[in-house]
Design a protein around this nucleic acid. Structure first.
Lengths: 208, 208, 208, 208
DNA sequence: AATGAATGAGAATTCATTCAT
DNA sequence: AATGAATGAATTCTCATTCAT
């Protein structure tokens, strides 16, 4: 007789919202249940434990980024500049979005301290992030440089995302993304990039 | 039994270690007490609440950075390059140190979601961090640029620090610090900087 | 284990017994839980806090008095004397009963010192008590006198109830109730009451 | 070297104030200590335990009443009416006084539920109270009646004192005291009392 | 599928009390 | 005499989890 009141996806999404707003430890299964219009006990029909639910949340965010953000990196029909733009602009939208936003950047780190399983998932997310960005840079730069540029860009974005949260000011992230995009553009300038990219040294001055 | 077993400083330090290792929410007053060789009730002799203890921890870390890290920015007897070097190298040491390390970067963010009082303290820390770095850049760049460079450098450092923790690999942070230092050096090169820094446009390509 | 072991009413009743026997502050949620055959955590399934439970206890006692004691005052089919008798005799039974007895008289006062919310509930109880008794007196006396007589009767009863508890002797209360009932009867005596009640002055000597 | 900062009397008085304001259970030794400008531990120089301190408080209140209130009953140089007046007027003053006020009436009862030793002390207080009032009535009435009148007067006073606290309105007590005094006066009226007091029956209608 | 009851392990906190200095 | 540190038991409350219906 009991009619289905919720489905996995809904629960994961509600959990995500709460984890983002109140952190993993401060969100109780009860909180999640009421957000879904369910009773505490009912969550255990869908997820064997809170930890497992968190893992599903992380994976869901990861999938979302793969489909909606990282994918832009691999659209060979567009210029590197355009791809990077698409990637970061969509990332910005997601990060600053209340629903799916920055879970992994900040909370991921903390939860990682607890369950090593979380850590692995968070690592995978960032490896994919790095890979996507690096793929774009590889169009312009050699392997080593592209790797560094990618890690650096993502680090800058994550750091400024943190500031956006701490100072409750979206501009930290927005400006950083503008800057990162600008960087590729500038160095895309044929005249300039030729000189700059020829030697590792020269490039060093750009990425550093 | 009524012989002093611990003092405020010790407790704050032990709490810091645990908060760093297991996160604020995952660390119980019991944990902290045992780490200090005390009974949990005894902690309340020194701190009225866990929240208050956390605030003291944050303040202590902040003070530590002021004295040991940020101070390098204001040593006018040294060159900007040297000051930045001293600042970041000492920051690196502290961040990667098990004892006093990166509390504010990661845990601060999460706890900030809860108690607004935490948030204020974390903000103050980063404002001081920004200010120190900016002070150095002001020797070379105009106000606006210096501000942006400072925020960007700190964001990069915080982001890569996060990666260092997530991937358990100090190199993320170390490389970033190397790179940031290199950046100033390069642009300090008289020959190059003349061209680059003369116009705001040119500088734009450097900082972002 | 998830078979219902207790219900709200049972818990409230057990709490009442304990609050009466050991006072509110001296009764722990653990005590109440054991009395109900429950684990202490389970109480929070029914009541969000001890304070809330106490409020429910007070309300339950109040309801009980309304239904079983005060109601007698409003039974217009009976003589005032009979109504007062029913009211006080039933009150006596309840007050001296181990289960539901005098919670509000004594404990109400102490708890009232703490939570103003308790105070309001205790006030309401006594206002209803006054009102019921006054309603009966209004059959014989004008407003002002009836009010005074009611407050005085209830005060006497509460005071002697206190003595009954302090001296562990039911007779303090029993004698007082006998006396109060006698008072109405005597003054109901037509021959006597005519003189006594004709002037306010005369009545004054009766109620005071 | 440590200079005496407080003495027993001061501590007892401060404790009394707090017990009255916040109840015995809600007052901590710490509260009492700070009210005395002492440290928690120092209280144990004067009193072996909180319970013991409470006993001393009760005894002190009792002594105070003996000297300042009950004593009026035994001043044979005055008329019964005047003695009763002195007794109740001084009682009223003390009861409504913030400092020494109604400890025994309300809190005594509750604490009595705990330690039987408290109960004995509270009983003694009321027995003395009864005795004083009865002594006055004995000037006018036979033993049995005097006893009843005394118990009744004190019960009324205690009950209305409770109402004064619950409703935060001094008038409950004040009016009751006026009425009780009036009662003796009225029945002291030679013309009236002669008739009334001749038979127990008649008197019954007065005291009841 | 959903629920609502129950659990039990632990959380933070309080507090009377002890005792070395 | 006074203190301040320490204690440890108790208290309120939380919460992930289980399970019979």
């Amino acid at each position: 007789m009991p009619k289905q009141k919720a489905d996995e996806q809904t629960i994961i999404l509600e959990a995500l919202k709460l984890f983002r707003k109140k952190s993993y430890f401060n969100t109780s299964m009860s909180d999640i249940a009421s957000a879904c219009g369910l009773q505490k006990g009912s969550l255990y029909h869908y997820f064997p434990s809170k930890e497992d639910l968190m893992k599903r949340v992380i994976k869901m965010v990861h999938e979302f980024f793969k489909t909606n953000v990282f994918s832009h990196a691999y659209d060979k029909s567009l210029s590197p500049q355009k791809r990077l733009e698409n990637l970061f602009i969509s990332a910005e939208k997601v990060f600053l979005d209340e629903e799916r936003g920055n879970l992994l950047g900040n909370i991921g780190v903390e939860t990682a301290l607890m369950a090593p399983e979380f850590n692995t998932l968070v690592q995978r997310f960032f490896l994919d992030f790095f890979h996507a960005v690096k793929t774009i840079y590889l169009d312009k730069y050699p392997e080593k440089i592209a790797t560094e540029l990618a890690e650096r860009s993502v680090a800058e974005i994550e750091g400024s995302l943190m500031f956006s949260r701490v100072f409750n000011d979206h501009n930290y992230l927005k400006n950083t993304i503008k800057r990162v995009l600008n960087r590729l553009e500038k160095n895309t300038d044929p005249a300039k990039s030729e000189k700059d990219v020829t030697s590792l040294k020269a490039v060093g001055s750009i990425i550093g």
